[in-house]
Simulated assay, not measured.
Amino acid sequence: MTDYRVAKGEAQEDQITASIEKFTAQVPSSVYLALALGSMAVSLGFSAAKKPHNALFVGQWAAPFLLIGVYNKLVKIHGSDGTKAN
């Protein structure tokens, strides 16, 4: 069976990605959790106000905020470029 995994040092991130990650690494991970919980709270408010379309729209923001937070945490812990020593 062929191994298709990318080996360490085989691929590098570009400068745009590196600059974005350098900027976002300064944001604490708890901010992304707060944004997710806030979107759920606003969604609940829209539901209570009988605005179901707005409630669904804002409520769906929680998952992307959590995913961005997980990605941010992984970059902080492991880095994004396999060529750099941690």
Rank of each mutant, 00 (worst) to 15 (best):
Q60M: 14
A63T: 14
M40D: 07
R5S: 11
A85T: 12
G59I: 04
P52V: 07
K76G: 08
V70A: 07
N86L: 13
E10T: 11
S80V: 13
Q12C: 09
N72W: 03
D81I: 00
K22W: 04
M1Y: 07
Y32D: 04
S80L: 10
G79P: 07
Y71I: 10
P64Q: 00
K50S: 08
V27S: 03
A49Q: 07
A49R: 06
A25F: 00
V31M: 05
A62N: 03
A63H: 10
G79D: 06
D3C: 07
T24L: 12
A7L: 10
T17A: 06
K8T: 09
A34V: 04
Q26M: 15
T2D: 12
E21N: 14
A63D: 13
A34P: 03
T17R: 05
A36K: 02
N72V: 11
H53W: 15
K84H: 07
T24Q: 06
S47D: 12
L56C: 09
R5F: 05
A85P: 06
P52L: 06
S80Y: 10
A49L: 07
V31S: 01
I20D: 03
D14Y: 04
S39C: 11
A11I: 14
K84V: 11
F46L: 02
I16F: 05
A34G: 00
A55V: 02
Q12Y: 14
L74M: 14
H78C: 03
T24E: 06
V70I: 13
A49P: 02
A63L: 15
A62L: 01
T24D: 09
G79C: 02
Y71F: 12
K8S: 13
P28G: 02
K8W: 08
L44W: 00
F65M: 10
A7Y: 09
A85Q: 12
S30F: 02
A11R: 15
H78D: 12
A55E: 01
T17K: 04
S39T: 15
E10N: 14
L33E: 13
T17P: 01
Q12V: 12
G45F: 04
S43F: 03
K51D: 04
M1N: 08
P28N: 02
S80M: 12
K22M: 01
N72T: 06
P28T: 04
T83M: 04
S47Y: 04
F57V: 11
S29N: 03
A25S: 15
G82V: 07
Q12F: 13
S43G: 00
A63R: 13
Y32T: 05
T83A: 11
V42D: 08
G38V: 07
Q60T: 14
R5L: 11
T2F: 12
K50H: 09
